[in-house]
């Protein structure tokens, strides 16, 4: 498999508002992620990280550029076609509790993608139970509602939901930011375990503002600043020898 799991080129988003100057949130961002690779995307708040992933998952329409997933251009896909794409790409959200429908049980939420892809009720139930075990949740969580569980448990369920359909690319949008440090560690350990289990199959795009966490977890790092990628490369190389002034500042701030 030579083609990258995800290739993004010249991705641009310009927000236009009447009576206000145009705001370029993401400016010609290009990068690619190889199969099995884990790339970290870091940047301060407002740098456009979430806008980038929202465009990659097509929850937001890009102004320009292209998104190629496993050699397939998904930039302009809509409707049914796009829904098929979601079987290969999943996302874990920043706010675990709010990423589950308050009126549905966690089990329903985790199994939704399976049901949508034609699995029977029974198959889905068994698979949900297996996934929850993998993610370290006991089986009775399937019948609980999002407000009845803690943030860390909810995020585990969110990871289980993202993995349910066996995606090739997993996007974690600040998946650990709203959790406390110990829970954060557990979630990272869980993600690491999943990566090793799946060998070279699962690629991860890990959005984060904590460079220490990225160093621990990722192979490669992309530094986003004011909508542009200012630096990218092997994590250790970038941290040892930062080229861009912003990256330098970022690294200095934690040392």
């Amino acid at each position: 498999m030579d083609q990258p799991a995800l290739k993004v080129s010249h991705l641009t988003k310009v927000f236009t508002r009447k009576g206000q100057p145009d705001f370029t949130a993401v400016d010609h961002v290009s990068f690619s992620i190889q199969a099995g690779e884990c790339a970290g995307l870091i940047g301060e708040s407002g740098s456009g990280k979430t806008t980038v992933v929202n465009m990659i998952t097509r929850l937001l329409d890009p102004t320009g550029g292209s998104i190629v997933l496993n050699g397939e251009d998904i930039t302009r896909m809509r409707g049914k076609e796009l829904r098929k794409v979601y079987a290969r790409m999943q996302m874990v959200f920043q706010t675990p509790a709010e990423s589950f429908d308050p009126r549905c049980t966690l089990g329903d939420g985790i199994g939704e993608s399976l049901r949508n892809n034609g699995r029977s009720r029974r198959e889905t139930r068994d698979e949900v139970a297996r996934l929850m075990e993998v993610c370290g949740l006991s089986a009775d969580f399937a019948s609980r509602y999002p407000h009845q569980v803690s943030g860390g448990e909810c995020q585990r369920a969110a990871i289980a939901r993202a993995l349910a359909i066996k995606p090739r690319l997993l996007i974690c949008d600040e998946a650990t930011s709203s959790l406390d440090v110990t829970i954060q560690k557990e979630i990272i350990a869980l993600l690491n375990k999943l990566r090793r289990e799946k060998d070279s199959d699962l690629s991860i795009l890990f959005i984060c503002h904590d460079i220490a966490l990225v160093q621990q977890f990722c192979n490669r790092v992309l530094v986003l600043y004011k909508g542009k990628i200012v630096e990218q490369g092997e994590v250790d190389a970038v941290i040892r020898n930062p080229q861009d002034p912003y990256t330098r500042r970022l690294i200095d701030s934690i040392l």
Partner: peptide
Amino acid sequence: KAARLSGS
């Protein structure tokens, strides 16, 4: 968004 990503 999550529901959309689940292919609903």
